[in-house]
Design a protein around this nucleic acid. Structure first.
Length: 951
RNA sequence: GCCGAUGUGGCGGAAUUGGUAGACGCGCUGGAUUCAAAAUCCAGUAUCUUCGGAUGUGGGGGUUCGAUUCCCCCCAUCGGUACCA
C-alpha cells in the first residue's frame, strides 16, 4: 500500500468487491431489530445527479451504516420516480420515447450513485414506470374505488357492504363521507336502475368521478393539482392556467382529514412541516345555520365559525357560482347580477390574486335572520368561494374585515356585537371579548357564547355544529401519456368498472404519438386497441398523476419482486414502517399528504400494521447553484455586441444592459465574489453561443478587445446570483468531476462538513481542500515515512482519552444528525494523534471503524491492509466510548464570586459537586475572601466552575 | 396579512441545551523547509486598549450569581400560505 492513495482506483476495487460479496444485500431476519432508512427517490432528469442530490443520500447512508454496525437489520433501498411530465415534454421536443430517455437517465443516476459508495441494497431497486410496480399502484386504485369511508367506524369499508345496507334500509342511517344529501329508502334503492345505482355509489367511493372545476393548462394539455400551480401559472414551464369544468377522477382524501391531523402528533417531524400540513388541512370548528329566504320555500344554508355573532349578521353573501343565484335573483336585479357574473368570469386567476377588489351585486332577495327577526339582503361576491363550507355566508361586518369592507361600500348596517375593551391588543380574529346587543347572549364571553348559540340552533332545528376543512379532494386525472393507465372500463351504459386483479397490470401501450390532444383528449384515446379492448367496452384513457407511484413505494421495497401482492404480509409485518425518511422540503405537502393518506387507507384494509408511513423525517436543505451572467449592451454598436465587465458598468446605465447566462464550466473562480471569464473562458463561451462569434467586443478596465486580439490575462467579471441548480440555468454541477479530483470519501465528508443538512446553501468548493488535507493526514497516521507501519504496543492513557472522546462526540453527532460536528471531531482527533506521533493498532483500528460510515472506501482499504483482508470494516461493531477514559484525574476549577473569577483550585474529577462544595469551605483563601460578607450559596458546575454567591 | 424558520469574526459554521463564546475548516499574516514553486509543518488571527483590562452572539428590555441559549417588544432575511367565513 502506497501512502499516496489513488482514490479512484480503490473506489473501483471496493465497489467491485462489495458487489461481488453482495455486502449490502439485506433479508428479513427476526433475530435482529429492524431499521428502515429511506431517501425520497429521485426523478431521473436528463441533467444527471447534481451535487445537491447526494446531500440527503450521504446523510442517510451514514446513518444506515451506523445503525447496521450497531446491530440493526437495516433496509436501505433506492429507486426511481420515473413517470412524469418532464420526460414527456422532452419526448415531445426530441421525439425520443419517454421510456428510452428515462431508462438512459436511470442508468446514469445509478452509475453516479454507485460512485459515491452508498450502501443501498440495489437488488431492491424499483421504478414506478415498471408494469410490475404499477400493477400494484393500479390495484390500490381499484381498492379505493371499491371502498367508502364509514364515519361511524371511522375507517374505509367495502362498497359491497354499503350496497347490502342500501338494500336493507336505504341510506338514511349511513354515516359516510360523501357529497350528495338525497335520502332514499331500501325500496327506492331496489327500484333504481343500474345507472342510477352506479351514480349513487360513485358519490360514496374513495376514488370517484365527478365534474369539477380544475386547473387546466392548455399549453401542457393537462389538468394540474393545486400545488402544481403558482400564482396562476404552471410550476412546470410557467404557462397560464385557467379554471375549466371537466369530468375527472378524484380521491376522497378529505375523508381522512381528521386522522391526518391527529396523526401528526405521533410523528418526529419538524414543527415547521407539521404546521404546514396542519394549515393545508385547515381544520375549523363552526356550525351550519339555515336562513329562510323571504317569499320562497327555500332555505339558505351557511357555514360560520362564529355563530355567536349572528345578532350582527346584517346581510348574506353567496358565491357567484352558487345554484341559488339563478333561481332567487329577481327581475329587477337580473341585469346587474348577470353583469357581475360575467365580470367575475372575465377575471383571470392572476388578476384575482393580484388585486382583491371589494365587489359584488345585490340579487334582490332577502333572508330572514332568525334571531334579530330582520329581513337582510342577499348579495353575491367573489370573496365567497363555492367549494368551501356551503358556498354562502352570513356577513357580520362588525367582526370580519372583508364583511366590513363590503358593508361600507354597499352602505349596509354595522351592528357591534362584541365588546373587546378588556382586550386592548386583540385583533378582529381573536375569539375574546364580551357579547353585547345580542339578547340572551349578552354578557357572555365569546367562547361561552359560541357553545350557547350552537346548543340554541340545534334546539331550534335550524343548524348544527360542523367541522370544516380547507383540504379538497384531490384531482387524480391527467390527460397525458407518461403515467399509469387507470384500471377502469366503461360499459355501454357508461358505468365505470374496475379491472379485476387478474387483469392487472393494465399496461401502458407503446406509442410515439404522445402529443396531448386538443381540449383535454388524452393521447391514449387515439390508440384504438387500448380504447376498445372489447365490443361495447371503453377504457379510461386518462393517466394517473406523478404522485401515484410515490404514495406507496416505501412498501414495495420490502418485497420488490412479489407478483402475488404489493408486498407479502410477513415482510410488511417485519419492516413495518420507515424509521427515518430523508428528503427535500419541496415535497412537504403533495407527496407526504398522499403517502400518509394511502398508508392510512391500506391500514384500514389491514395491509399495513401502522397508521403512519414515515416515523421520523429529516428535510435536507437545497444546495443551490450560482448562476453566472455577463453584461451585454441592449443596443448593438455598428452591428457589434458589446460585452462589458461589471466593475465598469455604472448604476444609472443598468437599464441599458441585459444579463446573458453563461455556462458555469467556463467560469474561473466559480462561486467566489470575483468570478470571471478569462480569455480561454471567452473562447469557450463563443463556441457555445456561436451566434456572437465574430461580431462582439469585450471591455474591461484593461481596454476594449475583440475575440482575435484578447490578451491572455484579460478578465471579464461576471454577475453571480444564487439560485436553484437547473439545466436551464447552465449551473448544474455534477459530483463526477469533484469525485474524480478528490475521491468519493472526500466528497461525502465535505458535503457533511458544509453545515447542518437542514440548511440550504450555495455550492462552493472553497473549503474542500481542508477535508482533503484531513484525509491525507488521517492516512499518514498509519505510516512511518513511506511504509505502512502500526505498533502493537499498548496504548497510553492519553491516547485512549483522545480515542474515547472522539467516539463519544461522533456517536452523539450521528444520533442528532449533526454530521458536520462529527467531521470536526475526526479532524481534532487526527491532529491530536499526529501531534503525539501515535501509531498504535489499539487506537487506530477502532478509529478506522468509527470513520467507516463517513469514508467507506479509505477505511475499507486501510482495514484490509491492517488486518490482512479479513472482514469488511462495514461488518464491524460500531465502537462505543468508555467513560473511565474520559475522566481526568484532577480538574482546575475557577473559583468565582458572583460570577467573577477570583482564583483557581484543583479538585479530583471523581469528586461530586457536594464534595467539592465541602472542600471549598475548608480552603484558607475562602475564609479570607468571604470575610465580612454573607455567603448565600455555593454553586458547583462539574468540570466548569465553582461560584460563590455573596450579598 | 397570517404561519414557520433563521440572525454568532473576513467566510462556512461550533458551543455538552443555562456554565470560560468563536471548536473545526476556509481565508489572511508571519516563520521553517526549498535554488524556486507546489506540497508539508510551526505560530498568530473578534473588536478596542493607556497592555491592567474593557466591549462583544441583529436591536431594546426582563428573569438569573451567570443568557448565543429562557420570557416580552422591535428590526432584517428566507420559506410556506392566502378572500377558507
Amino acid at each position: 500500500m502506497d501512502m499516496n492513495l489513488n482514490f479512484n482506483e480503490i473506489e473501483k476495487k471496493w465497489n467491485a468487491h462489495w458487489e461481488k460479496e453482495d455486502l449490502y444485500n439485506v433479508e428479513m431476519d427476526i433475530s435482529k431489530p429492524k431499521f428502515y432508512v429511506l431517501d425520497m427517490f429521485p426523478y431521473p432528469s436528463g441533467a444527471g445527479l447534481h451535487v445537491g442530490h447526494p446531500l440527503g443520500y450521504i446523510a442517510s447512508d451514514i446513518y444506515a451504516r451506523y445503525k447496521r454496525m450497531k446491530g440493526y437489520n437495516v433496509l436501505h433501498p433506492m429507486g426511481f420516480d420515473a413517470f412524469g411530465l418532464p420526460a414527456e415534454e422532452y419526448a415531445i421536443e426530441t421525439g425520443i420515447h419517454p421510456a428510452d430517455s428515462t431508462e438512459a437517465n436511470i442508468k446514469r443516476y445509478c452509475e453516479q450513485m454507485k460512485l459515491l459508495g452508498f450502501s443501498f441494497d440495489w437488488n431492491r431497486m424499483i421504478k414506478t414506470c415498471d408494469p410490475k410496480f404499477y400493477k400494484w399502484t393500479q390495484w390500490i386504485f381499484t381498492q379505493l374505488f371499491e371502498h367508502y369511508y364509514n364515519s361511524f367506524e371511522d375507517k374505509a369499508k367495502s362498497i359491497d357492504s354499503l350496497i347490502k345496507i342500501f338494500e336493507k334500509e336505504g341510506n338514511t342511517k349511513v354515516k359516510a363521507r360523501h357529497e350528495n344529501k338525497n335520502a332514499f329508502s331500501a325500496n327506492d334503492w331496489n327500484l333504481y336502475s343500474d345507472k342510477e345505482k352506479s351514480e349513487i355509489l360513485m358519490d360514496y367511493r374513495l376514488a370517484y368521478r365527478k365534474v369539477g372545476y380544475v386547473n387546466w393548462c392548455e399549453k401542457l394539455g393537462t389538468v394540474l393539482a393545486n400545488d402544481q400551480v403558482k400564482d396562476g401559472i404552471s410550476e412546470r414551464g410557467g404557462h397560464p392556467v385557467e379554471k375549466k369544468a371537466m369530468t375527472q377522477w378524484y380521491l376522497r382524501i378529505t375523508a381522512y382529514a381528521e386522522r391526518m391531523i391527529t396523526g401528526l402528533q405521533t410523528l418526529e417531524w419538524s414543527d415547521a412541516l407539521k404546521t404546514m400540513q396542519a394549515n393545508w388541512i385547515g381544520r375549523s370548528e363552526g356550525a351550519t345555520i339555515l336562513f329562510d329566504i323571504i317569499n320562497s320555500d327555500k332555505t339558505l344554508e351557511i357555514y360560520t365559525t362564529r355563530p355567536d355573532t349572528i345578532y350582527g349578521a346584517t346581510f348574506m353573501v353567496l358565491a357567484p357560482e352558487h345554484p341559488y343565484v339563478a333561481e332567487q335573483t329577481n327581475e329587477h336585479q337580473k341585469k346587474e347580477v348577470e353583469k357581475y357574473i360575467s365580470y367575475v368570469n372575465s377575471r383571470s386567476e392572476i388578476e384575482r390574486m393580484a388585486e382583491k377588489k371589494v365587489s359584488g351585486a345585490f340579487i334582490g332577495a332577502y333572508a330572514y335572520n332568525p334571531f334579530t327577526k330582520k329581513e337582510i339582503p342577499i348579495y353575491i361576491s367573489e370573496y365567497v368561494l363555492l367549494d368551501y363550507g356551503t358556498g354562502a355566508i352570513m356577513a357580520v361586518p362588525s367582526d370580519d374585515d372583508r364583511d366590513e369592507a363590503f358593508a361600507e361600500k354597499y352602505n349596509i348596517d354595522i351592528i357591534q356585537v362584541i365588546d373587546k375593551s378588556d382586550f386592548p391588543g386583540a385583533t378582529l380574529h381573536d375569539k375574546v371579548g364580551k357579547i353585547i346587543n345580542s339578547d340572551f347572549l349578552n354578557g357572555m364571553e365569546v367562547i361561552e357564547a359560541i357553545s350557547a348559540m350552537c346548543a340554541k340552533i340545534e334546539e331550534m332545528g335550524i343548524g348544527e355544529k360542523k367541522i370544516n376543512y380547507k383540504l379538497r379532494d384531490s384531482n387524480f386525472s391527467r390527460q397525458r401519456y407518461w403515467g399509469e393507465p387507470f384500471p377502469i372500463t366503461f360499459d355501454s351504459n357508461n358505468i365505470a368498472h374496475v379491472s379485476d386483479i387478474s387483469e392487472l397490470p393494465v399496461t401502458l401501450p407503446h406509442t410515439h404519438d404522445f402529443i396531448p390532444g386538443k381540449g383535454g383528449e388524452s393521447p391514449l384515446s387515439r390508440i384504438k386497441d387500448f380504447l376498445n379492448p372489447k365490443e361495447g367496452i371503453k377504457r379510461e384513457t386518462d393517466t394517473m398523476p406523478a404522485v401515484a407511484g410515490s404514495s406507496w413505494y416505501h412498501l414495495r421495497y420490502m418485497d420488490p419482486n412479489n407478483d402475488e401482492d404489493l408486498a407479502s404480509a410477513e415482510k410488511i409485518n417485519y419492516w413495518q414502517d420507515v424509521d427515518l425518511y430523508v428528503g427535500g422540503a419541496e415535497h412537504a405537502v403533495a407527496h407526504l399528504m398522499y403517502a400518509r393518506f394511502w398508508h392510512k387507507f391500506l391500514f384500514d384494509l389491514g395491509k399495513v400494521p401502522t397508521q403512519e408511513p414515515y416515523k421520523k423525517l429529516v428535510n435536507q436543505g437545497m444546495i443551490q447553484g450560482v448562476i453566472e451572467y455577463i453584461n451585454l449592451q441592449k443596443e448593438k454598436i455598428d452591428g457589434v455586441n458589446r460585452f462589458v465587465s461589471i466593475e465598469i458598468v455604472n448604476e444609472e446605465e443598468k437599464t441599458q444592459w441585459v444579463k446573458i447566462p453563461v455556462h458555469v464550466d467556463f467560469i474561473s473562480d466559480y462561486g467566489s465574489e470575483n468570478s470571471y471569464l478569462d480569455a480561454n473562458g471567452i473562447k469557450q463561451f463563443l463556441d457555445w453561443r456561436s451566434a456572437y462569434k465574430g461580431n462582439c467586443s469585450f471591455e474591461s478596465k484593461k481596454g476594449i478587445y475583440n475575440e482575435k486580439n484578447l490578451p491572455n490575462d484579460f478578465r471579464l467579471t461576471t454577475i453571480s446570483e444564487v439560485g436553484k441548480m437547473s439545466k436551464s440555468k447552465f449551473n448544474v454541477i455534477n459530483p463526477d468531476e469533484v469525485v474524480e479530483k478528490y475521491g468519493a470519501d472526500c466528497f461525502r465528508m465535505y458535503e457533511m462538513f458544509l453545515g447542518p443538512i437542514e440548511q440550504s446553501k450555495p455550492w462552493d468548493t472553497q473549503g474542500i481542500d481542508g477535508v482533503y488535507k484531513f484525509l491525507k493526514r488521517y492516512i499518514s497516521l498509519f505510516f512511518k515515512g513511506e511504509n505502512f507501519l502500526l505498533s502493537s504496543e499498548k496504548a497510553t492513557e492519553e491516547e485512549l482519552k483522545i480515542l474515547h472522546k472522539t467516539i463519544k462526540k461522533v456517536n452523539h453527532g450521528i444520533e442528532r444528525f449533526s454530521f458536520n460536528t462529527c467531521v470536526s471531531a475526526f479532524m481534532v482527533c487526527t491532529n491530536e494523534l499526529k501531534k503525539i506521533h501515535s501509531n498504535k493498532m489499539e487506537i487506530l483500528s477502532p478509529l478506522n471503524i468509527l470513520l467507516a460510515p463517513f469514508a467507506p472506501y479509505i477505511t475499507e482499504e486501510l482495514n484490509s491492509v491492517m488486518r490482512g483482508n479479513s472482514r469488511s470494516v462495514h461488518l464491524e461493531v460500531y465502537p462505543t466510548h468508555n467513560e473511565t477514559y474520559l475522566q481526568e484525574e484532577a480538574f482546575d476549577y475557577p473559583i468565582c464570586f458572583n460570577g467573577k473569577k477570583r482564583g483557581m483550585h484543583s479538585f479530583p474529577s471523581s469528586y461530586s459537586p457536594k464534595q467539592i462544595e465541602a472542600e471549598v469551605a475548608k480552603l484558607e483563601v475562602f475564609r479570607k475572601w468571604t470575610e465580612g460578607q454573607t455567603v448565600r450559596k455555593v454553586i458547583v458546575v462539574p468540570k466548569r466552575m465553582v461560584n460563590i454567591v455573596v450579598s
